[in-house]
Each structure stands twice: as C-alpha cells, then as structure tokens.
Write a protein that binds this DNA or RNA. Sequence first.
DNA 1: ACGCATATGTCAGTCTCTGACACTTACGGC
DNA 2: GCCGTAAGTGTCAGAGACTGACATATGCGT
Lengths: 185, 185
Amino acid sequence: MTRDAVRAQIAAVAIDLFAEHGFDQVTVEQIATASGISARSFHRYFPAKEDAVIGDTTVWAELVRDTLDQRPTDESPWESLRAAFGELLARSDGDRDRQRRTMRVLSSTPSLRARNLEKHLMWARMFAPIVEERLDGDHVELRAQALVQSALVCFDLALTTWADSQDDTSPVDYLALAFATVGPR
Amino acid sequence: MTRDAVRAQIAAVAIDLFAEHGFDQVTVEQIATASGISARSFHRYFPAKEDAVIGDTTVWAELVRDTLDQRPTDESPWESLRAAFGELLARSDGDRDRQRRTMRVLSSTPSLRARNLEKHLMWARMFAPIVEERLDGDHVELRAQALVQSALVCFDLALTTWADSQDDTSPVDYLALAFATVGPR
DNA sequence: ACGCATATGTCAGTCTCTGACACTTACGGC
DNA sequence: GCCGTAAGTGTCAGAGACTGACATATGCGT
C-alpha cells in the first residue's frame, strides 16, 4: 500500500470516529488502535490530530491558482475568482458522501473550522499576487487581499452550507449565490 | 487590584515575552513566573495560552452588534457593516502602541491567527441575524453570512495592515478602502 | 544471503490544560 | 475583636498532544 493510501485509510477511520463521538472526545490513541497502528505512527502521517480531517490541500490550491492565472485579463477579478473556485468544486471528484461527512465534522468543530480558515490564509498568499497584477491604482496589495479573502469566505460558506443541507443543491450554486451577494459589480 | 486589572497586567507581561521570543518559545510557566504567580493561576485568568493575546472580546462584539442594530433600515447592509466596524475602531481607546504590538504578535503566529478567526466566527453568528432581517428574497441566511464574514475579513485586514505599516495612516482609512474594494454597490 | 532504506514500536520527556485538595486572605455580621 | 463564609492561590497528580532517540522489522535490489 502506498503511503498516500495508508494516510487516506487512517483519515477515513478518524473521521468516522469524530463524526460519531465528536472531535475532542476521540484521542489519537483510539484512532491509532482502530487503524491498527501506534499513536507514534499516527503522528508520522499527520503532524497534528486536526490534519486527519483537513489533510494536505496544496494540490487543490495549485489548481485554483493555475485556473485563476489562465483567466482573461479583461475579466473582473471577482468573476475570475468565482470561476477559479467553481473549477475546483467541479474537479474535486471522489466519494461525495465522504466529502460531505468530512465537511460536517469540520464545520461543527470550532477548532477545526479555525484551522481550516488558517489554511485559507495560506491560499490567500498564493492567489493575491495574481489578482494584484490585475488591479490599478493605490494600495493594490490590501485590495487584492480583501478580494481574495472574501472569495475564500464565500467558498468556505458554500461548502459548509452544502454539507449541512438536506437537499441535493450543488455547491456550485451556493458558490454563485454567495459571490453574487458580496462581490463588486 | 480588580480582577480585570490583574488580567490586563498578566496579558501585558505575556505579550512582551511573545514579542521578544515568539509565541511558541515562551511557556506558560515563564509567563507565570514573570508575573509572580503560579502556572495554575495563569489558567484561572486565561482558559488558554492564546487568550492572553486575544482576550475577551464580547464587549466589543456587543458594541458592533448594537451599532449595527441602530443603523437606518434603508441603508445598504454593507454600508451599515462598514459604519459599525468603523465605530469600533473609533471607540477602542487606550495605548495605541500596545495595541499595535499585540496585533503584530497575533498576525505573525499561525495558531493565534487561527484562534482569532475562531472568534470571528462567533461574531458572525451574532451579527448575521441583524443583516438577515434587512435582506429580501431567497437564501437570506447564506447571503447574510457571506456579507458579515466578508466584512470581518476586511476588518481584520485593516487592522493587520495598520499594525504592519510604518506610517500613521488610521485603521479607519484602511477599513474604508477594503470595504470599497469588496462590497456590492 | 547480504546490505540498505523505509516503516514501525517502544520509551522517555515536554508542554498545555484540568480536577482535587489544602491554605491563606478579605470581609460582613455579631 | 471574633468568627464564618467566600474568593483567590499554591501544590500535586494526571490526561492528552506531540517530539526525539533508539531498536527492530520489513521490503527490495543485487
């Protein structure tokens, strides 16, 4: 079994336990035992307990960054951002049910939500320079950050709304709605 | 000495230590010793080490909530949010230098930023209902959250930009700039 | 079979945070 | 002034996350 496969397997076990008992009520020891490994090995796959839920998102971030970069320059930055995150939602394939369960655990645990937003700040540092180049005038750095971080908030909101909803509205629809509400015209 | 005064005193000691050695390099034990108390007592004043930097912000949150609530209903929600956060910036009096140093520590430590974002989510839950009432149409909950959380992002960005800047531009100016960049017209 | 790199378990230790208990201090009623 | 209560503090023990060090096992190419 490849290293990534083992990681995914442990994450799956962890998320199931979190969903049932709550993030804080489950110890690393329990996850490790349920996965047939030692607690020390768990920490070799995940630097922190939270990472079993959040995981490594650099691949996705790069996808968004590249999509954003390839958007036409005459398009408004806000529309480019919407398209880039829409592309991510469209491309993130896999077990929809598992994704939803993961998002549910994530959105219902304050410390996990915070950690996730923290990861989004890393994304913002990746995306901001691209937006910055497409802005004119003063304080482009601040303005680019404001746009990117607001976009990330909308993205996060679309995902959590989708995860907590019963019906099967697509996350892309929630994304469009959030972007339309906030963004500049 | 009142309880709040003691708390502020310990927080001041802690922030100075964090600013000099970095948040992770300073133990609770060291803060306690430098403050002339035991580590156990430190945790009686602050539930977590991070709270010595972030502190209790419910008073400020209530100020923003009340300001927001008293804004005219025919004003656009985005403008009301801008005014409410502007009011907070105008009213938060005290040692500007200390505030700036606190913000610098906060914005340069990942775990602190995460904790701060967690606090913002609490604020969002407080403000969203007010905005929600002033929206028409579908999905008001999602749209209110999108507006409020984007406003919080702008607020946070204004503060960090101010803290990291050399010149003495007012945070209110950065706030206006960020709001003008993102908000709907 | 051998050598090597990778993966794992065990152990010891640090640090944050909590509960329990004992002790001191401050204060209001008598 | 004396006493009972309440609030604040220190000490101790312990859980839980995480790290470094060391030894062992496992797989793989030669």
